[in-house]
Design a protein around this nucleic acid. Structure first.
Length: 591
RNA sequence: GGGGUCGUAGUUAAGUCGGUUAUAACGCCGGCCUGUCACGCCGGAGGCCGUGGGUUCGAGUCCCAUCGACCCCGCCA
């Protein structure tokens, strides 16, 4: 047993010692960040989760400790006892928080040695993701990652304290649950005792939280893992965390108020940022029209303008034919068009190609009219009207996309963000929240040849739209709302259906027969018949919130043990093969 | 399912038109050094060029396949 652990307890974190501690005797534990051996004097930067402090070993004063320090290498674990010394003015290191002081060693013990790490932990050197994920426990020693993980803990804690204060009750719901159609692909877990039957890991606790409202808990929340077996992205992991909430006897405005309060609380306590509430609200229609997508980045303008009417009447057949066919012509305006060369614009054409658009048409505006290959197809009147609508003046560049409305919005919505990033229009310090409301209840899926729930099948339709359920489901609006922050959907929710007849109608519209609906959701339909209160809720993607708060570029940077894009864990090797015996026990066979 | 970027000492990268012994920095090992803090100086070791096949007199370099990481589209109620 180490002398230090039995006799000398740690008194401080390395990174927390300041000039005010000068003269004190301290006991520190930590990792060797760096050793500087000057032949005589040896300096050791000792690191723990709070930071780094310099230890001084003088061969004349403490020859034993000095001799021991000779064999110390990076990432050794040390316990030290020493005195906090104010550094002389010319030896202060302003780049360290502890730079005004150093620790003069009294006693040194090596608690453990370390192999040479596979990469340098200084946070400066770029290391391949591959290696970092394999040695995640070492990567997690780095300051940036530790800061993100600590921020995450703080956000979770402040969320809990806010919601508890507001009268919410944290309730756990099952992970081993029932696979339900609609939504994402499920992760399945085979049952040993029910051969051939499977549990599913929850995509969200949606139905359980509604049942808790039926039970009368009134205000529920949970910070909970959810699982979706879909293809991954920089901001998507197969298992991720939601702040999940549900309330009874409330309407949209109640939820919006609570959440604005919650966000203000979280950002104040965790980042010391004051948010302006209420957040702006946009309808889904407005968001699509102006930004091309339902998660608009409202930190900058560069909005889409609809020119279908004007451009559709022009001699330019690409536009007029799209307009005749029911499509759309929309455009973006760059006031300073000179920043984009002909070559740049060609690259934008390739960019929108990725979103199904055939290309970008463009026109440069000057005193007399337009230049560019499409200019000749427009008369002075049309040019004037388009310039006016776009707010274009000499030097402007207009970028058009013409196609079906969906393709145009998708392509220009993406192009808008691409250009903003390329041209530096985004202020990284800005936090721009927006509520998106009045989502359509259903979207028609061409691949499935049926209507699908935009939000989920338990969302309440707007009452006055109920007659359209039979005649034109695409017109039915949902009582759903998303919260968007800096172009990222961080949360979404809805007022739920609390009447079983309405729920049955929705299932019918989704193409679920009564039999199927009973089989899949019978327990919900039953519950709705026993005095279900009006209720609604919302869920937040905690990981995405932390990403934005931490300025992280990847969701992996805010999760302690993340998975790769192929949903594998390079640290543990999961998923892995299992023995034939294990499979047999589960009544499974390899094919 | 589709498109793209990448894979060379422990790490990060360079490697021209296919041609002699595959470079550099950092790290590592050894030596010197009493105020460094990315310490400095001197010396040294270190390579399955992701893997498998092919073309060629000759492949890190060209071709095919494959594995892995990352980014995007589809997908993610």
């Amino acid at each position: 047993m180490s002398e230090f652990i039995t006799e000398d307890k740690r008194t401080h974190y390395c990174g927390s010692i300041r000039a005010k501690h000068a003269g004190e005797n301290v006991v520190l534990m930590g990792w060797v960040h760096r050793r500087r051996d000057l032949g005589g004097l040896i300096f050791i930067d000792l690191r723990d989760r709070e930071g780094i402090v310099q230890i001084v070993l003088d061969p004349e004063k403490k020859p034993q400790a000095h001799a021991l320090a000779h064999d110390i290498r990076s990432e050794f674990v040390l316990a030290i006892k020493g005195r906090v010394n104010l550094r002389p003015a010319d030896m202060i290191n302003p780049s360290l928080k502890t730079g005004e002081i150093e620790i003069i060693i009294d006693k040194l013990e090596i608690l453990n040695e370390s192999d040479t790490p596979p990469f340098v932990l200084d946070g400066e050197t770029e290391v391949s993701e591959n290696l970092l994920l394999k040695y995640r426990y070492l990567d997690l020693r780095r300051r940036d990652l530790q800061r993100n993980i600590i921020l995450r803990s703080k956000v979770a804690s402040e969320t809990r304290s806010y919601l508890q204060e507001e009268g919410f009750i944290e309730i756990e719901t099952p992970f081993l649950t029932k696979s339900t159609p609609e939504g994402a692909r499920d992760y399945l877990v085979p049952s040993r005792v029910s051969p051939g039957a499977f549990y599913a890991l929850p995509q969200s606790p949606q139905l359980f939280k509604q049942l808790l409202m039926v039970s009368g808990f009134d205000k529920y929340y949970q910070i909970v893992k959810c699982f979706r077996d879909e293809d991954l992205r920089a901001d998507r992991q197969p298992e991720f965390t939601q702040i999940d909430m549900e309330m009874s006897f409330i309407s949209e405005s109640d939820i919006i108020n609570i959440i604005e309060g919650m966000m203000a609380h979280i950002f104040k306590t965790c980042l010391d940022r004051d948010l302006r509430v209420p957040f702006p609200r946009l309808t889904y229609r407005e968001a699509i029209d102006r930004y091309g997508r339902d998660n608009p980045d409202t930190r900058f303008s560069l909005e889409l303008e609809d020119l279908t009417d004007i451009a559709g009447g022009s001699e330019f057949r690409v536009f007029s034919e799209v307009a005749k066919g029911g499509g759309a012509v929309k455009a973006l305006l760059l006031a300073d068009g000179k920043t984009l060369s002909r070559k740049d614009i060609d690259a934008l054409g390739a960019f929108v190609g990725g979103y199904g658009a055939k290309g970008v048409a463009w026109a440069r505006v000057n005193e007399d009219g337009w230049t560019g290959s499409i200019a000749k197809f427009f008369n002075q009147e049309e040019i004037k009207r388009i310039n006016e609508k776009m707010g274009a003046g000499p030097g402007s560049l207009i970028l058009f996309v013409a196609d079906t409305a969906d393709v145009v919005n998708n392509a220009l919505g993406a192009l808008r963000i691409h250009l903003a990033e390329k041209l530096g229009l985004i202020d990284k310090e800005t936090l721009s929240f927006a509520w998106i409301t009045e989502f359509p209840m259903f979207e028609y899926s061409k691949t499935e040849e049926r209507y699908m729930a935009t939000h989920h099948p338990f969302t309440s339709p707007v009452e006055e739209d109920l007659p359209f359920l039979e005649t034109d489901p695409g017109k039915v609006r949902a009582r759903a709302y998303d919260l968007v922050l800096n172009g990222s959907e961080i949360g979404g929710g809805s007022i739920r259906i609390h009447k079983s007849d309405v729920q049955s109608m929705i299932f019918k519209t989704l193409g679920l027969s009564e039999d199927e609906a009973r089989k899949k959701f019978g327990f919900l339909l039953d519950a709705l018949r026993y005095g279900t209160p009006p209720h609604g809720g919302i869920a937040f993607g905690l990981d995405r919130m932390i990403m934005i708060m931490a300025g992280a570029e990847s969701i992996r940077d805010v999760i302690a043990f993340p998975k790769t894009l192929k949903a594998t864990c390079l640290l543990t090797g999961a998923p892995s093969e299992v023995s034939t015996e294990q499979l047999a026990e589960l009544s499974l066979k390899r094919n």
